[in-house]
Design a protein around this nucleic acid. Sequence first.
DNA 1: CTTGTGCCCTGACCGC
DNA 2: TGCGGTCAGGGCACAA
Length: 275
Amino acid sequence: MPELPEVETIRSLLAGKVRGKTIREVVARPGDRIFRDTVPVARLKRALTGRKIEGLGRRGKYLIFALDSGDFLVIHLGMTGVLYLLQPGEPGPDHTHLRLALDNNDLVFVDPRTFGRVMLAAPGKLDEVPGLRDLGPEPLDASFNAEVLAAGLRGRKAPVKSLLLSQKPVAGLGNIYADEACFRAGIDPLRHGGALEPAEVEALCSSIREVLAESIACKGTTIRDYRWDQGKSGEFAARLQVYGRAGDRCPRCGRKIERTVLGGRSTHFCRSCQR
DNA sequence: CTTGTGCCCTGACCGC
DNA sequence: TGCGGTCAGGGCACAA
């Protein structure tokens, strides 16, 4: 479900509400798939209980809770994960996998498809967390630019969209924003990544930054069930130009938006505007 | 190392 | 109402 703008929206909403709070109790089921290959529940409970949350950060699509012990609680929402606060005693919905009782309310992680993950990192060991180590540059950092993106695409024969989804040339893009960024840049998502001209890489870099920043300003995209705060929708869906719009008219040239499948993912583009 | 494929899951929706 | 097929904001293991 969530890509960088949705994860960032959740982060900014929760950060002020959990900062400075102490984890009083941890509720989780041993062996839950959410902890696969990461941390045994017993150890997680020992590491979290009684700890204070000092801050909530984000890297790509990963949320990172900094604890006063120096440990980090890392959560990836996968496809259907959500994170929100409940009143103490308020029952969690189906598929609640983790509940942290804080001072005034409870933080719950709910994920029907269990593609999400909960991980724990020791001080200084954040880059040992699966997925974080090989993450590409943060797209909204000042240090991300066309040269950096070009270096990530150089020599690669895979379709540029596949490379964007790999999180390596740049972090945080998923199926929606990869399609939208390619459209804005006028680039066919099936082009070999390494075959892009410098001007095209420049356009792609700008498009990535713009589409992500605009979506964050809209609090993300709600197309099915993503909500950033109990029932409130992200408003970027109305600004999508190609994603989910197969058969509609291209907003630039009026021809039909097409849909194809690339690496098992739906891919939306305009054949005449993207080359 | 690189690239493509299949798979991990649940739930919503559509056509019959 | 059922029932099967398809699809879904992700990422990993594996084969070639």
